[in-house]
Each structure stands twice: as C-alpha cells, then as structure tokens.
C-alpha cells in the first residue's frame, strides 16, 4: 500500500510528496523501515528499494510483520541531481529531527522522523557522493556501537566503521532516530550518481538476512559472505591531496594495501608533470578512494583502516 507522509503545494500546479510503500503480512510482527534519497545525488538506494519492494511484494506471505520502504526522502533533490534540497542552504541530513515551526525543509524533516520513529529497525541507505567511492559499509556512532554493531554484522557488508561522535552529526536522521531508541543503521556504498548492481544485490540480501534473523522474513536468503571487518577506535587514516591537479589511479576500494604502496598520482595536464604521489602511510584496508579526478589541496583521496 502506498502512503503519503508529506504532501504540500508547490507554486505551479504540483504537489511535493514523500511516499512510502507499506507491505504488511501477519497480525503480529515487527516494523522494519528502509529509507534512502536524503541526498539527491545518491542513487544506490533506488535499486535496493526496487528489489526489496519487488521481492517482498511478490512473496508477502513470507513476511511476518511490516516492511516500509521510503525511496525518496528528498524527491526534488533526486529529480534535479542535487545533493541538497533545491533553494535551501543546509544539507537535509543536518537538520533532523526537524522543526514543525521551521522552514519547509525543517517541517519535512520533522514529519519524516515522526513517521519512522518507533520502528524496530531502520536502514538508512547512502551511496557516498560524486567525489568518493566507498566499499559497502555500515557506519555507527561510537555512542551506539554496543547496541547496533550486532545488527550491522548481519547485513553482510564488507566493513563496519564505528566512528567518533561529533556534535554536528547529532542532526542526522540516524542520530535523531537512535536518540528515540529507534535503531538505525547507516549504509554507505558505491559512488554518487551511479548504481552498482553488485553492491545493491548484496545489500538486498543483507537486509533480507537481517529481517530473517529478526523473525520478519521466512524466505530463503543466500548468505555465505565473509564476516564484516569491524573498525573500532581511532584506526582510520585519512589521505588528503598535497597538491591541486588531476588524480589518476588504477585502484578500486575494498582491497588491502601496504605501507608505501602507490594509491595514485596527481598530475598537471598543462606541463605534463606529476605534482605529487599519493602513497599509503600504513598497512591496511582501503575502504574509500577518490572517484572524481579533479582535486584541490586537501581533497580527500582515500581512507584506510589501519589494522
């Protein structure tokens, strides 16, 4: 059943709507939410939502509870290929839990949180941005690690990053939900504006597996994946560009690298020279790598988990 959770007028003959697909079976059972599209340039979640809606919708007799799918929390951003909300300065994932008396974006954020909170599990799917490519991973605030890591391990992602708490991140959807005791896992994978089918299929399986272990899904799920790498504590090395230029690399993320290994080079197309070489300062697991080649001094080039 398609339900509309936000509906307001736009100036010219259009309504702004945020919708969800509610698939329910069985009188008892838990409520599981899959949300995505907060950032309009992150598209992997679209395929994951499609697959879940298709698989569970076609096999709803195997569902014991409620699956709610929210494919587009920022429909105008998705439609205009913008990360944020058109005509609004702030990142939507920095204004939660919203404000019923604030701007339209803040009212929308408030309505979203009110609609989702109380769920037994929420998966918030992101897919990096245009600039970075990410290994399929779950990100958890250190404050919620004890509670959420056991759920995250069941998603079958390559990597679980338990990161430090930051005040500014208190305004994310995940933090706002976790603060109301609604468990929310943030998934990051792929790169902005593209869909990686393999990663999406993996996440669909992971979500069905998590639902299965929670008693929500009685269908079969092919697992057999390796255990996730769990990164806790201050063990992530950030590599930033030393020079501005064009970044060239042959590497993809999701591999082990050795100290001193070349990650890529930043070159000057005008003079035909290498401006700087990006090398790994540690032995570790490369889980983020620069995808967009034009870089400025300081641009993030890679993140490596230093095991």
């Amino acid at each position: 059943m398609i339900k509309t959770i936000v509906s307001t007028e736009l100036p010219i003959d259009e309504r702004f709507r945020i919708r969800k697909n509610v698939i329910q079976h069985g009188k008892e059972g838990l409520r599981f939410c899959v949300v995505t599209g907060t950032h309009g340039d992150e598209l992997e979640g679209q395929m994951v939502c499609y697959e879940l809606a298709h698989i569970v919708g076609e096999n709803s007799q195997k569902l014991n509870g409620t699956l709610e799918i929210y494919p587009a929390l920022n429909p105008l951003g998705i439609d205009t290929i913008q990360r944020g909300i058109p005509n609004f300065d702030l990142d939507m994932n920095r204004i939660f839990p919203g404000d019923p008396n604030g701007t339209m974006a803040e009212q929308t954020a408030h309505a979203i949180v009110e609609d989702i909170k109380g769920a037994d599990m929420v998966i918030d799917i992101h897919s990096s941005n245009l600039y970075l490519r990410e290994t399929p991973q779950v990100r958890i605030n250190v404050q919620d690690a004890e509670w959420l890591v056991p759920f995250a391990e069941r998603l079958g992602m390559d990597f679980v990053w338990v990161h430090d708490a930051a005040t500014v991140l208190e305004a994310t959807l995940a933090h706002s939900l976790n603060a109301t005791n609604t468990p929310c896992l943030v998934v990051e994978m792929g790169v902005g504006q593209r869909i990686n089918h393999k990663m999406c299929h993996r996440l669909v399986k992971g979500i069905l597996h998590l639902m299965q272990t929670m008693g929500l899904w009685q269908g079969t799920v092919e697992t057999g994946w390796e255990s996730s790498i769990i990164c806790k504590g201050d063990h992530v090395t950030f590599l930033n560009a030393e020079t501005s230029g064009v970044f060239l690399t042959e590497l993809k993320c999701g591999i082990n690298v050795m100290r001193g290994q070349v990650i890529g080079q930043i070159v000057d197309p005008l003079r035909g020279i290498v401006l700087s070489t990006v090398t790994s300062p540690v032995d570790g697991y490369l889980f983020t790598i620069r995808a967009y080649p034009i870089v400025y001094e300081g641009s993030l080039m890679a993140r490596i988990y230093n095991r």
Binding site: E9, L10, P11, F16, G102, M104
Partner: peptide, 8 residues
Amino acid sequence: PLVLQNAL
C-alpha cells in the same frame, strides 16, 4: 516571487 505551502 514564488512561495511553497507552509513556507515561512
């Protein structure tokens, strides 16, 4: 020149 419903 344009406003959305519920805009401040």
